[in-house]
Design a binder for these strands. Structure first.
Lengths: 189, 189
DNA sequence: GTCTATAACGTGATAGAC
DNA sequence: GTCTATCACGTTATAGAC
């Protein structure tokens, strides 16, 4: 039960969220965790290995959170709304999506956990949207798969917009607007 | 008419688009442009200055492109559609939005051109959406300002999703889904 | 399992010749 | 205005003692 390993992982998760992969050095992580060089390279193969391990844990945490928000006990569009209008801090980025524009995303070990999260989210949203269609809350000719992508993009792009505009609430206004459109897209006539 | 200055700027724009700010070194730009250290530091104060100058030019180019796509000769929602369903290559990022998650976005010289582009885009979209409302193509109780943010977020998030999923068309499916929702959000009854 | 010392390299920037 | 040589520093990683 190595406590230094846990400390390194905890600090890595925090710093990767705040700064991304390229801007976080092994040294930064060591200093933040209180562990030395030796512990770092004893427990992990290197920076990439530690980051990949950290992102795997983050991916699991985020998938669990999404599963709670998109819980099947709530019906159709209400479930989507709970996910979409969840209050987010736009001054930070998505703990996983923020790595998408880094060159290191080409590393399979980093992209894997991120890809897995987005696939999980898409699956949950498609189920919720299909449920909404069965309940007559959403027009049948709209494609759940495409809408799910759009919903995820609204959130991810909201983070981008909030950071660029220094308006930490832009992401929440974007989500609310998307929800308003979804609520209107009910069967016509 | 210094040709090395132009070459440095041209290479900087290309490399910044491909790799972002942090992952692009002055040396990379020198090598790509054929200019040496001397030219680099003669024409620019340093990496930040060159990048800021490059992003200012990119911002102007992108604003002009947006003005063409959202040209007022086309009515309301058709204008929005021309912007939203424009085919984009999801394997690259937005030439400006891609910097949003880098720590260097806190530098006012870098954020300025990016912020200016998003503000310009928002203005054009708000006008188009208000025009659509006047023409009865869009419900009056929807807020153009919020919808504009959502539309921009859909595009920016589409890039994120495309890169993370390695699906260069995800961005275009997201845009099409958003457009489908907008088309349905006409006055009810 | 953890530490400190150090290596090999790349980065952003400066100096000074031409 | 452009070049080459060089610097101080930070990065990722290794070596070897404890």
């Amino acid at each position: 039960m190595s406590s230094k390993r846990d400390a390194l992982l905890k600090s890595a998760k925090k710093l990767l969220w705040e700064r991304g992969f390229e801007a976080t050095s092994p040294r930064d992580i060591q200093d933040a965790s209180g562990a030395g060089q030796g512990s770092f390279y004893h427990h992990f193969d290197g920076k990439l290995d530690l980051a990949a391990t950290a992102l795997e844990e983050v991916s699991i945490e985020m998938c669990e959170l999404a599963s709670e928000l998109l819980d099947e006990t709530v019906g159709g569009l209400d479930r989507v709304e709970r996910f979409l209008v969840q209050q987010r801090d736009g001054s930070k980025g998505c703990r996983l999506g923020r790595f998408a524009m880094e060159a290191s995303i080409s590393e399979a070990k980093l992209r894997g956990p991120i890809d897995a999260y987005f696939r999980h989210l898409e699956t949950l949203l498609v189920e919720a949207l299909a449920d909404a269609q069965r309940k007559g809350q959403l027009a049948d000719d709209l494609m759940p798969a495409d809408l799910a992508q759009m919903i995820i993009a609204t959130v991810q792009g909201g983070f981008v917009l909030s950071r660029a505009r220094r308006d930490k609430d832009a992401i929440n206004r974007s989500g609310a607007a998307a929800m308003a459109l979804l609520r209107r897209a009910t069967k016509t006539r």
